[in-house]
């Protein structure tokens, strides 16, 4: 049956549709998607739908960016990570019911990333050694049209923001004793030529240790 026919048949659903349209026509809210508080100051308060974020190769950083945007609803895809730890994905708060992994897209990388940007809320992808500018702008155009957030581990020409890990402090582990209980990850972000730094605590629900915290204080004062 055609979509139109279905609507006619289910009049009560038509009114539900009207309701949804009303919602969509309502006052515009901030379109930015929530992000871990430690990172929100680095990227202007949240992830821009349709934005491309280029990261140095840290899956922890990628998950910190992605988690809150898909915590309540929305789907997350990981493209090109045969070694992504699934338990870590679940542990940070991404529902595995709304998560798929496309571990080895091989030579179809660009097609696959473009395809998943058309439907998924957040796409985490490892970029090949170099992404041709034409390919990058084609994929970015899909993301802009659909509002998907693309998080790329690797270089990306014309990225919305570039974030890199600037140093890590490992906590709890000593010289033959203890256990790794946390990591303070210093992140440097460059957006439109402006560089900012922050400390991302891992696990994400932990407060950063004070020794590295001044970065946050500085941000608070300005």
């Amino acid at each position: 049956m055609s979509a139109a026919g279905r609507i006619v048949e289910h009049m009560f659903e038509l009114s539900a549709l009207r309701e949804r349209i009303r919602e969509m026509e309502g006052p515009r809210v901030d379109p930015r998607l929530p992000v871990h508080p430690a990172l929100s100051g680095l990227i202007g308060g949240g992830l821009v739908p349709g934005g491309v974020y280029s990261l140095s190769p840290s899956l922890t950083l990628a998950l910190a960016l992605a988690t809150e945007a898909v915590a309540e609803s929305g789907w997350c895809a990981a493209v090109g990570f045969p070694n992504l730890g699934i338990e870590a994905v679940a542990e940070c708060g991404i529902s595995l019911n709304r998560f798929v992994s496309i571990p080895t897209p091989k030579e179809h990388w660009a097609t696959v990333v473009g395809a998943v940007c058309d439907g998924f809320t957040v796409v985490i992808a490892r970029s090949p050694a170099s992404v041709p500018a034409a390919t990058a702008s084609r994929i970015a155009a899909v993301a802009r049209r659909t509002g998907a957030v693309l998080i790329v581990l690797g270089e990306w020409p014309g990225a919305t923001a570039r974030l890199e890990v600037d140093g890590v402090r490992n906590l709890g582990i000593g010289d033959g004793h203890g256990l790794l209980t946390g990591r303070d990850i210093r992140v440097r972000a460059v957006t439109r030529g402006i560089t900012k730094t922050a400390v991302l605590p891992w696990p994400f629900d932990r407060e950063p240790e004070p020794a590295l915290a001044p970065v946050r204080h500085l941000r608070a004062v300005t």
């Binding site: 699934i86 595995l96 798929v100 496309i102 080895t104 897209p105 179809h108 395809a115 998924f120």
Partner: peptide
Amino acid sequence: PSSDRIHSVLSRVQSILGHEGVLTATI
């Protein structure tokens, strides 16, 4: 509607990479 959309996208990816090319995961 979104899960329907997801399904059509992933079916398309599967038609490129094969059935095992798109994975869901559980612990």
